[in-house]
């Protein structure tokens, strides 16, 4: 067991954990933040993407002890405390960017990290950036539309009423 301290969604947490604890286990089992999903557990599907010091990482492929001292944001930290959704979350709702919703936390985290450094991406850039996030429901079109809308750009077709 080793002690780890990090900031998760703005709050400092310190825990004693087994050395081989992955971030997915730390977030879900220790902190009970179950919004970070475990899809493939092999670094392929992207359902577990979180932000590590502002950059996207797959929580299934990083040990909690590697995050000692880091600033972590999970899907639970995206909306404002009063429940106001993050612009990317709102766009996913408005443009039907999800069906079953399993991949959505990872999609939102990947998309928001992209928009932080590429505020006005092209559609091709969005699709390329989603390379590490799999969705088996939507066929991606509405996810791409949602991200384009979240970036404040024109989107063909109207948002859902």
């Amino acid at each position: 067991m080793t002690e780890v301290t990090m900031t998760v969604n703005g709050e400092s947490v310190t825990k004693d954990i087994p050395d081989n604890t992955l971030m997915t286990g730390f977030l879900r089992d220790v902190l009970k933040l179950t919004g970070t999903h475990v899809g493939c557990d092999t670094s392929q599907c992207g359902a577990c993407v979180i932000h590590l010091d502002g950059s996207p990482v797959k929580a299934c492929s990083i040990f909690a002890l590697e995050c000692d001292g880091a600033d972590i944001t999970t899907i639970e930290g995206m909306a404002d405390p009063d429940g106001t959704l993050h612009p990317v979350q709102r766009a996913f709702r408005d443009y039907h960017g999800l069906q079953c919703g399993f991949c959505t936390p990872g999609m939102v985290m990947t998309a928001s990290a992209m928009l932080d450094h590429t505020p006005k991406p092209t559609e091709d850039e969005v699709r390329e950036h989603l390379e590490g996030n799999l969705c088996r429901c939507t066929g991606y079109h509405n996810i791409v539309r949602a991200i384009m809308a979240a970036s404040g750009q024109e989107v063909a077709g109207s948002a859902a009423e």
Binding site: S55, P56, V57, K58, S61, A113, E131, G132
Partner: peptide
């Protein structure tokens, strides 16, 4: 290489 999350690490 890989994808955006893999490139971070």
């Amino acid at each position: 290489i890989g994808d955006a999350a893999v490139r971070t690490r």
